[in-house]
Simulated assay, not measured.
Amino acid sequence: MPNSVRRVIGLATVGLVAAATTALGAGVASAQENPPPVAMISNLTGESTSVALDKGFTDALTSLDVTPGPFGSASIADGAASFPITGGNVTVYEPNEVLPYVQGRIEHMGSGLTLTKGDTEVTLDNFVIDPGDPAVLTGRVRAGGTTVAESTTLFDLNGSTLKPITIDGSAGTATLTGTTVTLNAGAAEALNGAFATDALKGGTTIGIATIVVNTTSGTMPMPQGGVETGGGNTSGTDTALVVTGVALLAGSALVLVVRRRGVRGH
């Protein structure tokens, strides 16, 4: 087994722990009946997640003679790496009713990054944004063409720097930018081993993320109460909820913004 594979193998252990934790959480959730969600996107399709790479991070890679590159359908241009959204789903409950109250995933299958130094190449791909608490980005890790972790935490996500959402009604998209992407401590340790350095630190800023999603697949059950509190009149055609689910990476959770408008009958 190549040295680079052995050095990155630590990520596989992290992945196993994460899988066990997820399985335990699923078992607890199945034992309880969740209340109706307030909003959901059942099938995310199209658009992308991009990261404007931080100069400090790229300078650190340059000093280590490590070259980043796009993998699969990803692209790197003008200092930003972009990864197409290929699927996923998001469900939102009332805060404190279900923990975590935002559940789901945003998938980026078939794209990722390569990190290359001499004969050593590490590939990070098949990214999945998990909007739980804490919010993280997981992915597959390969070294020398060998998979050492099918899914493990690579980056932590901090939405405290988030900017207001921008919605383009004519294009049917919503754009959210400002989430800070930082290197996970476990991933930093494994990459340091692969590239024989100690320069990469957990918490290092990778860049600022921008998520663009289609807003045509959102649904929401009708809540109780008046329109002002999220309810509506379902007995006639005077008022209804027209829902557009928009993925918002805010704080440590993915939040759905729900747009309402009046609909008149004919």
Rank of each mutant, 00 (worst) to 15 (best):
L183C: 01
L183I: 00
N184S: 07
G186W: 07
A187K: 01
A187L: 09
A188I: 03
E189V: 12
E189H: 11
A190W: 05
L191F: 13
L191A: 04
N192M: 14
N192F: 13
G193Q: 07
G193Y: 12
F195K: 04
F195D: 06
F195M: 09
F195E: 02
F195C: 06
A196S: 06
T197A: 12
T197H: 07
D198Y: 11
D198F: 08
A199S: 15
K201A: 12
G202V: 07
G202Q: 07
G202S: 12
G202Y: 08
G203W: 11
T204I: 13
T205H: 01
T205E: 02
I206S: 00
I208K: 03
A209N: 00
T210A: 02
T210L: 04
T210M: 02
V213E: 03
N214K: 15
N214C: 08
N214F: 10
T215G: 13
T216V: 14
T216Q: 14
S217V: 07
G218A: 09
G218K: 04
G218Q: 04
T219Y: 12
G226H: 06
G226N: 11
G226C: 06
V227D: 01
V227K: 02
E228A: 14
E228H: 10
E228T: 08
G230V: 10
G231R: 04
G231K: 04
N233A: 14
N233T: 15
T234V: 11
T234D: 14
T237L: 09
D238F: 07
T239V: 08
V243W: 01
T244F: 09
T244D: 05
G245N: 08
V246Y: 04
A247E: 15
L248S: 12
L248A: 11
L249I: 13
L249C: 07
L249Y: 08
A250I: 03
A250N: 11
G251D: 10
S252L: 13
L254W: 02
V255C: 04
L256Y: 05
L256V: 14
L256K: 02
V258P: 00
V258I: 14
V258G: 06
V258L: 13
R259G: 04
R260N: 02
R260D: 03
R260K: 05
R261V: 11
V263P: 00
R264F: 09
